[in-house]
Nucleic acid binder design. Structure first.
Length: 414
RNA sequence: GUGGGCGUAGCUCAGCUGGUAGAGCUCCGGAUUGUGGUUCCGGCGGUCGCGGGUUCGAGCCCCGUCGCUCACCCCA
């Protein structure tokens, strides 16, 4: 096995057996998003590294330790989709289009992390971004669309958590307040939390250490520090979601790992998943476009992991495409006419296959049965027989095999 | 980067206190001098992840190493 080359760690092959369910995710995403006015966008697989260091945030784990960057040229395999979409928005002058501009994508992303259940180094995300409006209806609609998408695919055990982060200034001062609070109770905190006070004090809310939990029960909450306009914005988002009967929990401790979020943030989790329970999430990022060199432009969107959606869903067996005709032959000397018949059938828009593995006639019939062929043409010295695989009837072909199949396909027999 | 679990045929796995590899599924062929499901029979397929060590002898014991996997961290 030493000389065998394997797929790189954290990557996977999508085999035919899994291709159909993934195609289904794409089909549902297209349906749900395009009927809401979203247009598809695809951006390059790699971008200038600076797009992510500036957009996603220099201090985030994603930028600090998870980027696949090339040794020269200053490029990085995209670790997420929002910054590239914003880059494209600016680059193509989309601010001159009617706003908001709504875009969706389904692409691969790359992060150098330790692989785990539902976490890969190359993974697929479906995402939606709406740029150019700070209307809370954008936030609410965006969330509803992700809910719709997950529901239509059949993801189970879903829960929606919702919060507001306010403005970057609010967050900054809150962060300082929280850090000060943590330091004043330092002796009760777990060592891990204590070590992360300066780095990421918000994480203290997620700790399962009893001492830390006791401290956090009385900790100040960001949601109580929102400005009046941010609080009002958040309330409007909630009202709109309530009107649509979407169930959610307001979770003041909801943390997003990317720096660009402001105001609304949300995350769908699934109980069907392991430790990586997040199926998809997102929020508003009103400062991002400006941060990467564009005009001040509000934005809101989300991304959901395709692999996680599939893990959280039942995978209904997708029926293989029907096969109209399988062409068999009794002896290799009839291979050429058999080959021609199959080719002609495909030109006539039939799903047709010819024996390609040198099987015995019995083996060929078995193969035809296996792939669910409706008809089998058997070429032999007696001419060509057309066998109806449902009834078992065989007819000697006069003239064109393809014409007979086309005639017989609609009805029960020939 | 740290810790737990696991690495035996393409897949799922068995292999008792160490005696030099098995099953089921899949695939191919035969039973039906050319025709599909089921059943029966046969065949293809493995340097037991890799490298050392102990032993007369290692899939099994010891050490190392690589890989997979789950979890921490973080995130989709």
């Amino acid at each position: 096995m030493s000389g065998r080359i394997q797929a790189p760690r954290g990557t996977f092959d999508v085999l035919p057996a899994q291709a159909s369910e993934r195609a289904e995710v794409e089909a549902v995403a297209r349906r749900v998003l395009e009927r809401a006015g979203y247009g598809r966008i695809e951006t390059p697989t790699f971008e200038a590294t600076e797009l992510f260091s500036r957009g996603v945030g220099e201090s985030t784990d994603v930028v600090q330790k998870e980027m696949y960057s090339f040794h020269d040229g200053g490029f990085t395999l995209r670790p997420e989709g929002t910054a590239p979409v914003c880059r494209a928005y600016v680059e193509h002058g989309m601010h001159k289009l009617p706003q908001p501009v709504r875009l969706w994508y389904l692409s691969t992303f790359f992060r150098h992390e330790a692989p785990q259940a539902g976490r890969f180094r190359q993974f697929w995300q479906v995402g939606a971004e709406a740029l150019g409006s700070d209307d809370p209806a954008i936030d609410a609609e965006s969330i509803l669309l992700l809910a719709e998408l997950l529901e239509e695919i059949g993801a189970r055990g879903l829960r929606l958590r919702l919060a507001s982060l306010g403005t970057p200034e609010t967050r900054l001062s809150y962060r300082a307040e929280l850090a000060a609070y943590l330091r004043s109770h330092e002796e009760q905190l777990s060592p891990e939390v204590r070590a992360r006070i300066a780095l990421n004090p918000l994480r203290a809310f997620d700790s399962d250490d009893p001492g830390t939990q006791a401290v956090m029960a009385n900790a100040p909450l960001l949601i109580d520090r929102l400005t009046a306009s941010d609080a009002e914005h958040f309330q409007e988002v909630r009202d709109l979601l309530d009107d649509c009967d979407l169930v959610y929990d307001v979770d003041p401790t909801l943390v997003r790992g990317l720096d660009y979020y402001s105001r609304t943030v949300f995350e769908f989790t699934s109980s069907e998943l392991g430790a990586q329970s997040g199926v998809g999430g997102g929020g508003r990022y009103d400062g991002l476009v400006e941060m990467i060199g564009g005009p001040p432009t509000p934005g809101c969107g989300w991304a959901a992991g395709v692999e996680r959606i599939l893990l959280a869903s039942d995978h209904p067996a997708v029926a293989p495409p029907p096969v109209d005709l399988f062409v068999a032959y009794s002896d290799t000397k009839y291979r050429r006419p058999a080959f021609s018949i199959a080719a002609e059938a495909r030109r006539a828009r039939l799903a047709a296959q010819v024996e390609l593995a040198g099987r015995s006639l019995k083996g060929q019939l078995k193969q035809a049965d296996r792939i669910g062929a409706r008809f089998v043409a058997i070429v032999s010295e007696d001419g060509t027989l057309l066998k109806d695989m449902e009834s078992g009837e065989q007819t000697l072909v006069q003239g064109s095999v393809v014409a007979m199949v086309l005639r017989g396909r609609g009805g029960a027999g020939l």
